[in-house]
Design a protein around this nucleic acid. Structure first.
Length: 606
RNA sequence: GCCCACGUAGCUCAGGCGGUAGAGCAUUUCCUUGGUAAGGAAAAGGUCCCCGGUUCGAAUCCGGGCGUGGGCUCCA
C-alpha cells in the first residue's frame, strides 16, 4: 500500500494543560496572558472572600481563554450571584491594590492559613510544598498560597467576565468534597474580551447539536433514551456516503470486512478481561432462565478474535486485517453525555490487525497513514497526536512492564519516523496497551479522541492466538487495534461543525435542487431531475407554488450546494441556470452541468 | 453519578408574584405563476416535561423524578 506523503497536522492554537493541576503541579507560567488570568483568579477570590467571609478557597489557575477558582461556600451559590461578585471585583480592581509577594517559613504560612480557617491551603502546604520556604501573594487582605508571578496591581485587570459556576471535586478526586468552581474569562483589553464573547456566540451557532436539529440530521428523544441518537434521513445519507468511502478505501488497502453481532456471551468478555477491567461501562448482561448470559458488546475485538481463530492461520496470511463498522455499547454516566460526541451506542470504524512482531511497525505506520488519508479527504485539518501510556496503578493494566515498553516504543518510533510531533497522555492507555490518539476539537474547543491506533500483546495471550510460522512452529501474533476514522458519531459531529452544515457536495444530503420558475417549466424541470438522478446524484425538485426567490432562500438555508434554476429560456435551450450556495451564478448546458457535478462528487472534492 | 442552569405549539421564544396561554417561522387550504435569499389570506396546532403535595382553583407555589446544556470525574 502506498505511503502517501504525510502532512503535518496543524497544531491547535494555544494548547494548554489538558488537565487541571493543583499547586505544585501546574506550571508557574511567565506567559503574560496566563499571568493576567491567574491574577484575575486572585481578584475573584478576593471579591468572594469579602462577600462570603466564611468561604474556603481551593485553587485558581489560568485555563484556556480564562481562569477559574474553586470555593467551598457555607450556602450554595448560583449563577445569579455572579453579578454581585463581578461588581465587587471591579471595585477592588479600581482600588489599585498591589499584588505583593512574600516568602514565609513553612510554620508561619501554616499558621497564617490556619488562622484564616483556610483548610485547603493548609492541606496543600502539607502535601505539596517541599522545603521550608512558602511563597504567598497578598492582595489587600486576601492571602493566597502561590508562586506567581502576578501583575503589579489589580488596576491592570480591566477586561474580565464571570461566566458560570460548576461543581468540581477537590483535587480532581470524586471521593473528595465537591467545591463550587467559578469560571471567568480575562483579557488585556475590552476589545479582546468582546471578541472572545463573540467567539462563544459563534461557537453556539456552529454547534453540531444546533445544526443537527436545524438541518434535520439527527435527533434524540427521551422515549428512546439519553445518549441514543436517531439518524434522520439527511444524516443517514451522509453516514452512508462516509461508510462507503471508508469501506472502499479499506478494501483497497488490504482489509477484509466482516459483520458480527452486537451481543456475545458474557464469558467472551470474561476471557478478554473486559468484564473485569471495563465493567463500569458495560450494560448489565441479559440473563435467561436457562442460565444464558448475553452481553451488549462494549468493543469489537473479541468478535474479530473469534473470526481469526476460525481457521488455523499461516504466516502467509499475515497481516490479517479484519475490519468492521461495528456498534459498541457503553453505559456512560448520564452527566457525561454530549450530543453525538459522547453517546451510549456508537459505530466504530474499527479494525484488528493480526500480524507478526516483525510486521508490527509497518502496520502501525500504515494505520497512521490511513487515518491521515481519511483526515485529508474529509477535511479534518486540525488535530494533534497524543501518545497515551499507562500510569503506575497496577490493577488497571494487563501484561508485563516489558510488553508495554515494546508496544510504546513501536508507537513512538512510528510517529517519529513519520516526522510527527506528539504529546504524552500518561494514564490514558487502553487496559491492554498504549495507543496513539488523534485529538480533534469541537466548536467549543473541547478535545476529543477520534482516530486511534493501539498495540496489544495481551489479548493474543488471553485468547491463546497462534499462527504457523515458516519453520512449522506455532507463534503468537501481535494485534493492532485501530479506528481510522473514529466513531461515525464523533466523525459526523466533527464534520457538521467543520463545514457548519455546508458539507462537500459528495457528502451533502441533497446535491442539487431544481427550481422551476413557473409551472410552465415543470416538465422540463422533471427531465432535469431525471437526468441528474441517472448520474447518481441526489436531487430534489422544488415545485411548490412559491416564488423563485423563496425557493432559493430555502435551498440556501439548507446549504444545498447547487440550485438548478430553470425558466423559459433554459427550457428552450436545454440549459440550467446554476446558482451555488456561495452565491455564484452560471448559465450552462444541462449535460455540462451534470458532468461537472458528477465529477466533483466522484473526486470527493471539497 | 455529582454541581449549576434550563424544560411553554414541529422550531425559536414571549407571558404568567395562583383564576386552564401568545407571537414569528414551519404545517394545511385557497389565491398568486413571480428571473437569483421570505407574495397574500385563512385554518389548524398546547396534559405549559412527568408524578405527587398545598389550595375552592396549579402551567405558575412546594417536594420528588425525567430530560437537555455547561462543568467535575470518566472516555471512541
Amino acid at each position: 500500500m502506498a505511503e502517501s506523503p504525510l502532512p503535518s497536522p496543524t497544531p491547535h492554537p494555544d494548547p494548554l494543560p489538558s488537565r487541571e493541576r493543583g499547586y505544585g503541579d501546574h506550571e508557574s507560567s511567565e506567559d503574560p496572558l496566563h499571568v493576567l488570568r491567574h491574577s484575575t483568579a486572585h481578584l475573584l477570590a478576593a471579591a468572594v472572600m469579602e462577600l462570603y467571609p466564611d468561604a474556603k478557597y481551593g485553587i485558581g489557575p489560568p485555563v484556556q481563554d480564562g481562569f477559574y477558582y474553586d470555593f467551598a461556600f457555607s450556602k450554595p451559590i448560583s449563577e445569579s450571584d455572579l453579578g454581585a461578585i463581578e461588581s465587587r471585583m471591579r471595585r477592588i480592581a479600581q482600588e489599585d491594590r498591589p499584588f505583593v509577594k512574600e516568602v514565609m517559613s513553612r510554620h508561619q504560612a501554616l499558621d497564617e492559613f490556619r488562622k484564616r480557617g483556610q483548610d485547603y491551603k493548609v492541606e496543600l502546604i502539607n502535601d505539596k510544598v517541599e522545603g521550608d520556604e512558602v511563597t504567598v501573594y497578598r492582595t489587600g487582605d486576601f492571602l493566597d498560597l502561590c508562586r506567581g508571578p502576578h501583575v503589579r496591581s489589580t488596576k491592570e485587570l480591566k477586561a474580565f467576565k464571570l461566566l458560570r459556576v460548576a461543581g468540581a471535586y477537590w483535587r480532581g478526586d470524586e471521593k473528595q468534597p465537591q467545591l463550587t468552581r467559578i469560571y471567568g474569562t480575562s483579557w488585556p483589553s475590552a476589545k479582546e474580551l468582546e471578541e472572545h464573547l463573540k467567539f462563544l456566540e459563534e461557537a453556539e451557532k456552529r454547534d453540531h447539536k444546533k445544526l443537527g436539529k436545524d438541518l434535520k440530521l439527527f435527533m434524540v428523544d427521551e422515549r428512546v433514551g439519553p445518549g441514543l441518537p436517531l439518524w434522520l434521513p439527511a444524516g443517514a445519507t451522509i453516514r452512508r456516503e462516509l461508510e462507503r468511502f471508508i469501506v472502499d478505501e479499506e478494501l483497497a488497502r488490504g482489509y477484509v470486512h466482516v459483520r458480527t453481532p452486537d451481543v456475545a456471551r458474557l464469558d467472551l468478555y470474561r476471557q478478554s478481561g473486559h468484564a473485569k477491567l471495563y465493567a463500569e461501562y458495560m450494560y448489565p448482561p441479559i440473563r435467561f432462565e436457562d442460565g444464558e448470559e448475553l452481553e451488549l458488546r462494549p468493543v469489537n475485538c473479541p468478535h474479530h478474535i473469534v473470526i481469526y481463530q476460525s481457521e488455523l492461520r499461516s504466516y502467509r496470511e499475515l497481516p490479517l486485517r479484519i475490519a468492521e463498522i461495528g456498534n459498541n455499547w457503553r453505559y456512560e454516566r448520564s452527566g457525561t453525555l454530549i450530543g453525538l460526541n459522547r453517546v451510549r451506542m456508537f459505530a466504530l470504524n474499527d479494525a484488528h490487525i493480526f500480524c507478526t512482531p516483525d510486521q508490527l511497525m509497518d502496520e502501525v505506520k500504515s494505520s497512521i497513514d490511513l487515518a491521515l488519508y481519511f483526515s485529508r479527504v474529509l477535511g479534518i485539518d486540525e488535530f494533534s497526536y497524543r501518545l497515551s501510556t499507562r500510569d503506575d496503578a497496577k490493577e488497571k493494566w494487563l501484561g508485563t512492564e516489558e510488553q508495554w515498553q515494546v508496544a510504546e516504543a513501536a508507537l513512538s518510533e512510528a510517529l517519529e519516523s513519520m516526522g510527527q510531533k506528539y504529546e504524552r497522555g500518561v494514564g490514558e492507555a487502553a487496559f491492554y496497551g498504549p495507543k496513539i490518539d488523534f485529538q480533534v476539537r469541537d466548536a467549543h474547543r473541547r478535545e476529543f479522541t477520534n482516530s486511534t491506533v493501539q498495540v496489544d500483546f495481551q489479548l493474543p495471550e488471553r485468547f491463546d492466538l497462534e499462527f504457523v510460522a515458516e519453520d512449522g512452529s506455532r507463534q503468537r501474533p501481535v494485534m493492532v487495534h485501530r479506528g481510522a476514522a473514529g466513531s461515525m458519531e464523533r466523525l459526523f459531529s466533527y464534520l457538521i461543525e467543520r463545514y457548519v452544515g455546508a458539507f462537500p457536495t459528495w457528502l451533502h444530503p441533497v446535491q442539487v435542487v431544481v427550481i422551476p420558475i413557473t409551472d410552465a417549466e415543470r416538465d422540463y424541470a422533471k427531465r432535469v431531475v431525471e437526468r441528474l438522478r441517472k448520474a447518481h446524484l441526489r436531487v430534489e425538485i422544488d415545485d411548490r407554488s412559491e416564488r423563485m426567490q423563496r425557493k432559493i432562500r430555502d435551498a440556501q438555508a439548507r446549504k444545498v450546494p447547487y440550485m438548478a434554476i430553470v425558466g423559459g429560456r433554459e427550457a428552450e435551450s436545454e440549459h440550467v441556470n446554476v446558482r451555488d450556495r456561495a452565491g455564484g451564478q452560471t448559465d450552462e448546458a444541462l449535460e455540462a452541468f451534470v458532468e461537472r457535478v458528477a465529477e466533483e462528487v466522484a473526486e470527493r472534492r471539497r
